[in-house]
């Protein structure tokens, strides 16, 4: 297997607050790695750093052999190859679904209108959104909006997809449709790094699970091992709280 992402000694602070305290992580191509951990453990920040949405303080991030944190790297080129989907969807409210999806291919990849539109319509069709192409985001349900956000990221044909708690802002009955999309992507071999609170889903879809605690990866391994026989007491505590809350 080839390496998709290699993260070494990643540190990130917001002012006095150190959010990431030395993250080391390797994700291979076609691997699905789930990041679990309490709110504030640094999952989102880690994903944002990988997409260069936050400047890092120390360490390096290598994607497909390129150190994207070194000087002189074309950051826009990196972002074109890495997709990210946010918790709050962040669709562009002044554009229709189709234009939301076409914007990146048209302006960042410089595709022609026809090619970009064909690509967008193919993806919208695949995820059951074809009849929504001319709607504005505020006419869609949360689940539909999040699926459009995933399609928007996929339209860039990313080599790596980052998913930042993409179901946390959804009503419970809408979570399933979004998880189905991710499941389908995983089966298709998409390399994904997923921050999630959906433990059942992580267990099912992940090739590896990392438990983040206070800015460090405390424990990582296959889902069975992490969920059934966690080694670290902090991991056990976290999972027990999740079970008590009825989420596993």
């Amino acid at each position: 297997m080839t390496e998709s992402v290699r993260i070494e000694g990643l540190h990130k602070s917001f002012g006095e607050l150190e959010v990431l305290k030395g993250i080391d992580l390797v994700v291979d191509s076609h691997e699905v790695v789930c990041l679990i951990g309490a709110s504030g453990s640094g999952k989102s920040t880690l994903l944002r750093c990988i997409d260069l949405l936050e400047p890092i303080d120390a360490g390096r991030i290598v994607i497909d052999g390129l150190d994207i944190t070194s000087r002189g790297v074309d950051q826009n080129a990196v972002r074109r190859r890495v997709g990210i989907v946010f918790q709050a969807f962040n669709l562009f409210p002044h554009m229709t679904v189709l234009r939301n999806v076409m914007l990146g291919p048209r302006e960042a990849l410089k595709l022609g209108r026809e090619e970009a539109e064909a690509r967008a319509l193919e993806l919208l069709g695949r995820f059951g959104l074809a009849d929504r192409r001319d709607d504005y985001p505020d006419r869609l349900s949360g689940g539909q909006q999040q699926r459009v956000a995933i399609v928007r990221a996929l339209a860039m044909r990313p080599q790596l997809l980052l998913l930042d708690e993409v179901t946390s802002a959804l009503d419970p009955e809408l979570v399933g449709e979004v998880l189905n999309v991710i499941r389908e992507l995983a089966e298709g071999g998409m390399t994904m790094l997923i921050a999630t609170h959906e433990m059942g889903f992580a267990r099912e879809v992940a090739s590896r699970v990392c438990f983040l605690d206070a800015g460090l990866i405390l424990e990582e391994g296959p889902p069975e091992e992490i969920f059934s026989h966690p080694k670290e007491p902090r991991t056990r505590q976290f999972l027990e709280r999740i079970v008590q809350a009825g989420r596993l």
Partner: peptide, 23 residues
């Protein structure tokens, strides 16, 4: 978050301004 969203697609600062923020 709108800027983050635009930049994450690989749009430049100026493109984000033009297509996402200004409208």
């Amino acid at each position: 978050s709108q800027v983050a969203s635009a930049r994450s697609l690989g749009l430049t600062r100026w493109q984000s301004m033009r297509f996402v923020i200004l409208p």
